[in-house]
Nucleic acid binder design. Structure first.
Lengths: 346, 346
DNA sequence: CGCACGCCGGAGAGCGCTCTATCCGCGCAG
DNA sequence: CTGCGCGGATAGAGCGCTCTCCGGCGTGCG
């Protein structure tokens, strides 16, 4: 920029008042004579004043920014990190998280700083970033169960909220879904539709959510006299869903219902089923999970167990806000209920 | 946090030197006696010092942060904004942009602030954000041709780099792809494979890139004696690709080659083709565009015109860096060349 | 009529850092 | 022995803002 940006001082001089008064009207604090308010407002307009945030942050000790951290486990190389970023966004799930967070943050004019933490160095950088006061807290979405970041954050007493309960207990708030109930919902729906030989494509068993969904599905089936359920493990991707369905079909050609642990895999299953001449839902009913965009992209539209990701993400933002402002001091957990959405695939 | 964070002063006292000396070793500047350097380093270690960024920014007049802005045109309502965010991330394209940017930014320890700007208010907020010094510049990805943000940014003389050339000239640097060459590549490949009745599913004609790809495709065909090419317009989504292919097939059942303006639509085309009993690539050859994850997710793997999005995004970051630091003052354009990637769909 | 109190604006002290100007001590030339 | 240059550390002046005091004035009540 060519000329210096105008400061409070400049505006004050222009309006013929003191710096403090201008600051007061800018921040809408205390009673300032309406006439003077107007005077100041005009001076701001004329000078084109924009308050310097660094200066404000310095005294308020607040960045008015939060970090949105996508973290993994292990210690990925630098090259693999770009791939990690691409992979994360390939899943429609993450877009919904962002949408939910942004939806809550934007009315407050705060914008998230995007950080990826899948190496020890990157995790350390997240902690440093927060300790430097560049962000007031962190919203953490882990892609792996044994992510070390939450413990790091808690250890440094930095405000943070997690998506999903961490495997080892950490004194941090989190939001989660009653995954087990979701699995149950899918099972009951399949049963109600008359399925007698249901199978399931579960998610990676290293992920707690996958285990829970599977357990809920099995439990409900067992309670209704179906002790054995064919299971194929997928990786939450379309291709893994295809592969799992192919295996399932090879071993159990008479399957008449499939519960996939996410919509992407359900899509894969539909494709494979179709290629093998099975009609969905007439011959085989398919139920997905998440109710992501994948559920209504392509045919048939999927019956699925809805996970209110946007609401959950918004709730994370709300919780973090409370922690940052000291309104809430104790870690809290908020568990959302899944909901069955019936469409064309079952 | 319970106790105050340690400051430079604290470290200086601990090390028995002055504040300035500590600052020098922290910033690795000028000659400091190695013995004292070590002393200071230990003091930093002991106190657990992390420099306050607000204070530093205040004097350096630099945030060491850039804004990553996804902008649209028009004036979307607040509710629609969350949907906008979700939609943006639904396209694998954007994940690659983020990956490319993060890949370049992270080695410098800078992390992007994510902003969406699809309403006048949101656009204004982006400008304010930068004017407040919260970010040093903006990386802008527009989803619409007539996005007003670039002009706003240029008008405020804020450093910014665009993805794709803006329709109306704006004195800002940008990176782009030779879309026309991409269309030509697809045409020549289809011709070389022996296609005699090629058709195309173009992108939204409101987007300059769509027009260019289409023009390149047509030109190449015309030059080889094929003046007429059936065209169906899609919206860069899977479903729109399905619809377009359905139309194309209805009017031109003898089509033997399809060029879709992105991979998602190519996928949709493959699906529809398959459902109509046409084999890909035996009966109909399909060529996509982008070489996104969609190209290798699902069968068949798509032949596609590669757009090096990650490299382009990294280049944006590099250009912005140069503008911010005054190394580069004049707007520059960098145009990348597309590349044909032959896989199974043709 | 005097006093206390409430309301509103101003003065000024920092917030934690960088960076310039300065100072100190030492070695060496005059 | 003095003066000078220079490497190396320090002192201190801000950067632009917030916020606590404080003072002045108007008002209501005793």
């Amino acid at each position: 920029m060519s000329r210096q940006a105008p400061t409070l001082e400049d505006v004050a001089r222009e309006a013929g008042v003191s710096r403090a008064t201008v600051s007061r009207v800018v921040n809408g604090v205390r009673n300032v004579d309406p006439a003077i308010q107007e005077l100041v407002r005009q001076a701001i307009e004329r000078t084109g004043y924009a308050p310097n945030r660094a200066a404000r942050s310095l005294v308020t000790r607040r960045a008015e920014t939060v970090a949105l951290v996508v973290s993994g486990a292990g210690d990925t190389s630098d090259e693999a990190q770009a791939a990690f970023a691409a992979r994360v966004f390939a899943d429609p799930f993450f877009g919904r998280v962002v949408a939910g967070i942004v939806g809550r943050l934007r009315p407050r004019s705060v914008h998230p700083v995007l950080m990826f933490a899948e190496s020890a160095a990157a995790r350390h950088e997240v902690v440093t970033y927060l300790r430097q006061g560049r962000a007031d807290g962190a919203l953490v979405v882990s892609s792996h169960a044994d992510d070390p970041l939450p413990a790091l954050l808690a250890g440094a007493r930095l405000p943070a909220v997690l998506f999903a309960r961490p495997v080892r207990p950490v004194p941090l708030s989190y939001v989660d879904l009653a995954h087990r109930d979701g699995g149950r919902l899918a099972a009951e729906h399949l049963l109600a539709r008359g399925c007698r030989r249901p199978a399931t494509i579960c998610g990676p068993l290293a992920v707690a959510a996958s285990q829970e969904r599977l357990a809920g599905f099995r439990d409900a089936l067992a309670r209704r006299g179906l002790p054995y359920v064919p299971v194929a493990e997928g990786g939450f991707t379309l291709d893994s869903g295809c592969a799992a369905m192919t295996d399932l079909l090879a071993e159990h050609p008479d399957v008449d219902g499939v519960f996939a642990a996410n919509d992407l895999m359900a899509r894969g299953a539909c494709q494979v089923l179709w290629e093998h001449g099975r009609r969905v839902p007439e011959d085989v009913a398919v139920v997905g999970f998440d109710d992501s965009t994948a559920a209504v992209t392509g045919r048939p539209h999927l019956t699925t167990v809805r996970q209110p990701v946007e609401d959950m993400a918004a709730e994370m933002a709300r919780l973090l806000d409370e922690h940052i402002h000291g309104i809430r001091t104790e870690p809290t957990s908020i568990v959302f209920d899944p909901e069955l959405v019936v469409r064309d695939s079952s």
